[in-house]
Amino acid sequence: MTLTHGCGCAGNPLIPKSCTILKITEETPDVKTFRLRAADGTKPFAPMPGQLAMISLAGVGEAMFSVTAQGDDWIESSIKRVGELTEALHDAGEGDRLGVRGPYGNHFPASSLKGKNLLFVGGGIGIAPVRSLILYALERRADYGDIDVLYGSRSYADLVFKEDLFENWPGALGTHITVDAGESCWQGHVGFVPAYLEEMAFSPENRACILCGPPIMIKFCLAALEKMGFSKENIITTLEMRMKCGIGKCGRCNIGSKYVCLDGPVFTMAELDELPDEK
């Protein structure tokens, strides 16, 4: 099997497609969502939920991001400002050019999750990788059972995708939003995600949990979920690893004999237990 990356750049899978920034949404003080279309007016590629895109700025560098949404002729990634490249991306404006290659990696098991209740648990920017699956399930609402999103951030300002959380999703799915510390502008739940999760006491019955966030949150949520009776096979997460090539060659992203860019980023907790402890 030879994989292609939907680019056609002389067949070199490391060469990106030139894309235009259609729209930039400021989600939080340090997260922006970039809507991207190929310079020739087409969709850069059609990823499955959870797949990755390598986004580059000529002369600066490239890095891997999850694709959080897609439309007829665009894909979206939500990018947190953490380093040189993301800084430069945050400085870019609508109409600017950047490079995109992908899609990379495996994806959420959207079809084997059919018929199940879905519980999404996210913290901070950790909602970005799961948003693609939430949107996918909403488009096929009848295929899935109950859908709940339990999501928290440090503060109200740090909640990513406020439009989804407070306007688009309520009604179509259960939203359970929390912030770490109380503030005057916030009427909702206050407290950390793991504690809120335990409070909510979701039944593990026919339910899969998709869990993404900072390592410490994952750790405590995992303990809470196991206490609630979830098996590790039914807890799905995405891994972050430094990546360079995205195609299983550069050696950067391995955990044991698995490459996160090919065999990941989506793993069940049961699969992660099989891998050496180097995440």
Binding site: L14, A58, G59, E62, K244, C250, R252
Partner: peptide
Amino acid sequence: YCFDLDSENRGGTAEEFRCWDCC
């Protein structure tokens, strides 16, 4: 065979290069 990928700005052209790296 591990490698690094990086980008260098030369005049109006960004040279995207790969070079040996080491784990």
